[in-house]
Structure formats: C-alpha cells, structure tokens
Design a protein around this nucleic acid. Structure first.
Lengths: 228, 228
DNA sequence: CCAAAAGTGTTTGCTCTACACCCATGG
DNA sequence: CCATGGGTGTAGAGCAAACACTTTTGG
C-alpha cells in the first residue's frame, strides 16, 4: 500500500454523536481537546478512519474507546465535507449517531483514557470545536424524528425496562408529555418489544412489568432506515 | 498543500444516482466504463473529490459534466466505505441522488463526452460495476419514501406542468395507480405548487391548467430533510 | 356529435386523541 | 389504611380512502 499518491487526498474521519438519558435529561458525550486547533474546547469523539476498517467499524471503535460500550445502536447520520471546516486542511467527516443505555453510560466517565470524556445535557452544551454544534443539532432532529416513526427509544434503556421508564425517555427527548394509555398502545402494537414474566418492585407502588425489545427488533429498525 | 502524508488516506469519490422519468418509466443515468476495473460494465457517474470543492459541489460538477444540467435537485444519500468495494484500493464514496427534469434529460445522451452515457429504465438495468446496484436500490427506496411525505415529484418535470403529468410521475415511481381527486387535493393543500394563468392544449381533450412549483419550495423540502 | 382528457364533492371507515378510575405494593 | 406508581377502555374528532359525473376541447 503506497504512502504517496499521484493526487492529494482529503483526510477522512468519523465522529460519533452518542446520546444517553441520565438524570432525566438527554445527554451527549464530549471529549475535551488537548491540542490545537480548538485546544481546551469540547468536541465529539472521533478520529481517522483506518485503511483496514469500514466506516461503521471505525465509528464503533471510537465509541468503544470512549465509553467501553461495544454493542450500541449505531447509525450513519450525514457526511460533512465543506471546505474550511477544519483549519488543519481538508477533512471529510462521516458522522454517526449512537444510543447508549443509561447503565452502560456510567462507565464512559471512568476517565481511564488520557482524554477527558464527559456527558453534557443537550440544553447546556459547552463551546464546541469545528462544526460539531451543527452535527449535534442535526443528530437531535434525526433522533426525534426516528422516535416518532419507529421505536428506537428502548435502545437507551437497559436490557429490560418498564413501560413507564420507556415513556419517560420519549418525553425527555421529545420535550413534551405523552398520554400514558396512548403511549402504551402504540408501543405495544408496533411489536418491537415484548413482555417478560418478571416485575420490578420499586420502593413504593405497584410492581411494574418488565419488557425487553425483541432480539430482531434492531434489524427491523435498520431495515426501515429510510434516512439511511 | 503536501502531496505526501504521514499516514495513508483512503480515496474519496462522489457518485450520483440521477433519476428521470421518460417514456413512462423511471430511468437512471449510467456511464460505460472504458478501463479496468469493470471495463465495459456500466457504472454511476462519479469521480474524485477535488481538494478545493465541497462534496455537494463535486456531485453537482459530475452531474453537470454528464448531463449538462446545472441546477438539478441534489441530496446526499449515504456514504459507502466498506473494504473491498473497489479492487484498486480503499475508496470511500459519498453517494448523492438527483432528480432531472425530463426535458433536460434529453441532452444527457448527446455524447459530447468521450464516455458513453445512457439512461436505463430501473426495471432493465445492465450489469453494474462495484456496489452500484446496492446504491441504486437504496436511492430508489429513498425516492419512493420522499414522494410519500413531501412533494419532490415536480423536480422531475419541466418548469410548468399539468397535474395529470405530475400524477403520472408519482404513479410510475411508486408503481401503483392513484386516485385523481385525492392526489390533487393532497398536492395542492401541501402548498408547494401553485397554478399559473396558462393552459396546455393537447391534441385531444380539455386543455389542462399548468402549474409550477413555488420558487421557495426546494428550500422547504430540504429544510425538512429528516433523513438528510 | 363523439371521443378524450380535465376537473370537481361527498360519504364512510379508521386512526389518533382526550380523558378518569381501579389495582398492587410498601411503609 | 394511606401514599405511590402501575395498569386499563371508550367516545368523539379529524384524516384518509373510495367513489361517478360534468366540462371543455379537437376531429
């Protein structure tokens, strides 16, 4: 594999907009940049695409490096290639968005990596490097849209969850409250989740039935990926 | 701008899936490849992204080179970056899809370019190079979807058109017949097209009112790009 | 006056929304 | 037994689908 080319090539990176829901807020994972450009500013986790890995593999690798999560829901978002978006030169970035279950998200802030990684609530983002604010804004639009016509919301929850927890996730992301009965009807008749025989006993109140998403639900959602 | 890099970089290309409707069929523009790999096979128009042009500019340029059309509807589709999709090495392709009005599409086959360019009906595609069959299949899915929730169909027609012509475009792409009254109601109340004071007198039958899309309709459609 | 395409409203079924009460448990 | 959260059904409204006839022109 030659290291010199007849024509110059743009650099290719992947960036990941990783969402989670914690503390009743939608949060995004950001990394503090150590060096120029934008040293000290926060940025999306990402990096160069290796010559021997696919784009999705690169995104998955970046995500795993920062969060320790290996099997998150991951979907290609958009490819950004305008000139001048990176002061170091021509950089084309394939952006992905990921949904991290709340329990897995805790590990992300372990900070075993040299880089500082932190979750930020969507409504309190710090100053961001590059065009990452645009990318995040677009990812949120896409996430909201997907919530409305699919049932990806459960990707933000642990393996089993109650319908109330799921509804709370939807309400947090969409920013509006939903009717309990209508929500349950819609989710259940969409067929992507199923009841388990187990219940969760909270500190108070009636125990809640636990549900899980059907093993093939992820495939279903991706097959319908109408925006890619 | 250096021609050598510390690390090897993948090549980046854009490919364009250009659709038009002619002869009552949905057609795709293809180029016959002159050289290896896949010499003699047909492929999507496309090429390398210049260091000084954005992705959309590159796609637009490729499209203009092959069709002479400069202002077609153009939208990013998906980015393909799997290993082994190009036998020459690592190539990442940002795919776009374009809608070409029927009257403009005629010019495309002028053949002033050395490369042979031809429109093929979607249901009679020749053997295709690379993973271009996948890209086209995905572009069709996206086009069909967009037709159902927006009104991009008029992008495939000349500047002014009749509602019957527009309906025929929808029927051809969706592969099913639509109710005339319901179709008209939906399109008109979506507000993206407006009546002109003119009529088209055909060879037979009552003259049909001509419509045009509102100048800002394209912006509207793009703003709603939920899958980018 | 006949053929051909354009144009126009209403009824019906269904899906989505709004809404209030009983149930099971822990303290 | 009381507080807390879990769970359930129905009636009305708005939207989408089915459907047939009149109008205008050319030959």
């Amino acid at each position: 594999m030659p290291y010199c080319y007849e024509y110059p090539r743009p650099a290719v990176t992947v960036d990941v907009v990783a969402f989670t829901v914690r503390q009743n807020r939608l949060q995004v994972l950001l990394i503090r940049r150590g060096r120029a450009p934008f040293a000290g500013k926060w940025a999306l986790p990402g990096g160069f695409v290796g010559m021997e890995e696919s784009l999705e593999a690169a995104a998955s690798r970046e995500l795993t490096e920062e969060t320790g999560v290996g099997d998150a829901y991951l979907e290609q978002l958009y490819t950004y290639g305008d000139l001048g978006r990176d002061p170091r030169g021509r950089v084309i970035t394939v952006a992905y968005f990921a949904l991290i279950p709340a329990d897995a998200a805790v590990r992300a802030e372990g900070g075993d990596d040299a880089a500082q990684a932190r979750w930020f609530p969507m409504d309190a983002l710090p100053p961001l490097a590059f065009d990452h604010a645009d990318i995040i804004a677009y990812a949120l639009r896409r996430l909201r849209y997907k919530l409305e016509y699919t049932a990806v919301g459960f990707q933000l929850l642990p393996e089993t969850f109650t319908l109330s927890e799921l509804q709370r996730v939807y309400e947090i992301i969409l920013g509006e409250s939903l009717d309990k009965r209508n929500f349950r009807r819609r989710i259940l008749q969409s067929g992507v989740i199923e009841a388990t025989p187990h219940y969760r006993r909270g500190r108070e109140g009636r125990p809640a039935r636990l549900y899980r998403y059907k093993p093939d639900a992820v495939a279903e959602v991706k097959a319908r990926r109408l925006f890619p």
